[in-house]
Design a binder for these strands. Structure first.
Lengths: 164, 164
DNA sequence: GGCAAATAGTGGACAAATGCAACTATTTTT
DNA sequence: AAAAATAGTTGCATTTGTCCACTATTTGCC
C-alpha cells in the first residue's frame, strides 16, 4: 500500500516508495552518477565509456599473459562482449594478443608500451576519482561500504580470497 | 607501481590492482550483477531492462500527477530519455498523461488501472530481489551500506531530506 | 505591454553497449 | 574415435544514451 502524495513539482517533496529502502536502487543509481563522472574525467583518454576498458587495461598490465575469459569473469561480461572490447583496445595499440603455446584455444594478453604508459597515467586518476566522488561520505564510512561490497563481489565472482 | 603476477588462468589468482580499493569499481560491478538479476526476475513483466521503468511506475503510482522532469532528476536521466521512457509506458497502457492546468508547459502523470496493478505486483518483487540478492551480506551490514548510500544519493540529487 | 530568458517537453540522428545464438578451433572425456 | 567441454569470433537485433535543435509556455525585466 503506497503512501500517496500528490503532484510533486520539485524533487524535495518526493519520497521513493519502496525504493527508499532498496539497496539495489541506490547501487543502480549511484552507478549512473559515478560512471558519468568518471567518463568526464577520462574524456579523450581512449578508455572512457562503459565498464571494462579500465579494468582490462589495469589487469593486463599487472598480470601479463592473462586470458580474456578470466577478465570477462572479473568484469562480468560474456565472452563476446569481452572479445570486442579487446579488439577495440588492440586497435588503439594498448594491448597485444598472442595465442598461448600450451593452450592453443586460449590467448595471452600483454600491454603495449603505450598501454603501459596509459595504465600508469590512469591508475592515480581512477583512485582519486573514486575518493573525490564519494568525498561527501566520511573516509571511514567509505572504507566500510567498500569492505562490505568487496566481500560481496568476491563471493559473487567466486574469488576465494587466496592470492598467489 | 603495480604488483605483477604472470599469466593467471583462473580468477582465483588475480588481484584487482588499484581497483581492489576503489569503491567505484565495486559499485559499477555490483550494478551489472544486480541489474541482470533483477531483469531475470521481472522477465516479461513490461518493466524489465534498464533503470527507470520501475522507478517511474512506482513513483507515478505513489505521487499521482508527478511531472516527468521530477522523475528525470530522481533517476538521473535527461529529459529526452525520460520522454521516450514515458512514451513507451503509455503505449503499454501503464501510464496516462495530461497537461497541467496551472502550468501548461508541464505534464501530470497518472497510472492506469493496469499500471496500478503492475505497481502492486512489482513492489514486493523489487524489495525481495534486493534482499535476496544481497543476502550474503548480513542484514545489519546491508542496512549500513544502504544508509550510507542513501545519504550520498540524497546529496547528489539535491534532496534536502524533508518529507512532505 | 512587450521582449528576452528560462523552463517543460519533443523529435531526430548517431554512436555504443548488450545479449543471444550460431560457428570454428582445440582440448578433454569416455 | 566420437562426444562433450572450453576459448574465442561473428552477426544480428535491441536498447540506450547523448547531443542538439525546435516548439510552447511562463516569468522577469524594462
Amino acid at each position: 500500500m503506497p503512501k500517496v502524495t500528490s503532484k510533486p513539482t520539485t524533487i524535495e517533496h518526493v519520497d521513493l516508495d519502496v525504493l527508499e529502502d532498496t539497496l539495489s536502487f541506490y547501487i543502480r543509481t549511484m552507478n549512473i552518477a559515478v560512471s558519468r563522472d568518471l567518463d568526464a574525467r577520462l574524456d579523450g583518454c581512449e578508455v572512457a565509456r562503459g565498464t571494462g576498458k579500465i579494468t582490462t587495461l589495469l589487469l593486463v598490465d599487472s598480470h601479463p599473459g592473462i586470458r580474456p575469459s578470466v577478465i570477462a569473469q572479473i568484469i562480468m561480461k560474456d565472452r563476446s562482449a569481452m572479445g570486442r572490447l579487446i579488439e577495440q583496445m588492440i586497435e588503439h595499440d594498448l594491448l597485444r594478443r598472442q595465442t598461448s603455446a600450451s593452450e592453443r584455444r586460449a590467448q595471452e594478453l600483454y600491454v603495449t608500451p603505450k598501454g603501459a604508459e596509459l595504465a600508469a597515467m590512469i591508475r592515480p586518476i581512477v583512485t582519486k576519482q573514486s575518493k573525490d566522488f564519494f568525498s561527501f561520505i566520511a573516509e571511514e564510512e567509505q572504507a566500510q561500504v567498500m569492505d562490505i561490497l568487496r566481500r560481496a563481489y568476491r563471493k559473487m565472482v567466486g574469488m576465494t580470497g587466496e592470492r598467489d
